[in-house]
C-alpha cells in the first residue's frame, strides 16, 4: 500500500504543478505526469485493462494538447493574488473535507463492495460467457448496454467536434482549404 500513497502524492504534486506553472507546455507535461501516475495506480490496484486504456488515452490527449498549445500565444491570465476567490476556495475545501470526514467512516471498507453481483460475475463469468478476461465479459456481455452508451457518447463527441470545426465557417472568410 506504500507505493499507492507514493503514487497518489506524486499525482497531487503533478496536478498542483499543472495549475501553477506559467508555461503552457510545462503545464501539459505535468498533466501527462498525473495521467502516468494514474496508470501506475491502476496497475498497483491490479486492473491492467484500465492501466492500458488510461496510458493510451493519456498519450493521445497529451499529443492533442501539445499540438493545440504549442503554436498558440494565449493571453496570459493576470495573477490576482489573495482575494475573495482564494477565500471562497479555502472555505469550500474546509466544507468538503469536513463533510468527507463525517461520511467516510460509513463507507464499506476497501475491497469489500456492497454490490454482491460482482461475486456472481467472478464465479460464473468464465462458464457463462467463455471469455477468459472477466473485464471484457462484464463490459461486452453482462453490461453491454453501458458500452453501447459509451459508443454513443464517442459518436456524439465526434459529431460535436466536426460541427464546431467544420469548414463552412472558414469558407466565408475565404480560407476554403478543407
Amino acid at each position: 500500500m506504500v507505493e499507492l500513497y507514493i503514487l497518489l502524492i506524486l499525482m497531487i504534486i503533478g496536478a498542483v504543478g499543472a495549475l501553477e506553472m506559467k508555461d503552457l507546455l510545462s503545464s501539459v507535461v505535468a498533466l501527462g505526469a498525473v495521467g502516468l501516475g494514474l496508470s501506475f495506480t491502476f496497475l498497483v490496484l491490479k486492473a491492467p485493462d484500465l492501466a492500458i486504456t488510461q496510458l493510451a488515452v493519456e498519450i493521445l490527449s497529451v499529443i492533442i494538447l501539445i499540438r493545440a498549445t504549442l503554436h498558440k500565444d494565449l493571453p496570459e491570465v493576470p495573477a490576482r493574488g489573495w482575494s475573495g476567490g482564494t477565500a471562497a476556495g479555502l472555505g469550500f475545501a474546509v466544507v468538503f473535507l469536513g463533510v468527507a470526514f463525517l461520511c467516510i467512516p460509513d463507507l464499506p471498507p476497501f475491497g469489500e463492495p456492497l454490490l454482491k453481483v460482482a461475486g456472481h460475475y467472478l464465479e460464473a463469468g468464465l462458464k457463462e460467457t467463455g471469455a477468459a478476461n472477466l473485464v471484457t465479459s462484464v463490459i461486452l456481455d453482462y453490461r453491454a448496454f453501458d458500452t453501447l452508451g459509451e459508443a454513443t457518447v464517442l459518436f456524439t463527441v465526434v459529431m460535436g467536434v466536426l460541427a464546431v470545426m467544420r469548414a463552412v465557417g472558414r469558407k466565408e472568410r475565404g480560407k476554403a482549404d478543407e
Binding site: 485493462d49 486504456t53 493510451a56
Partner: peptide, 15 residues
Amino acid sequence: HGHLTPGGGFAGGVI
C-alpha cells in the same frame, strides 16, 4: 485478444 488478455476494443482502438 481482448477476451483473453487485458485490453479490449477501446484500448486497442486508441492504440
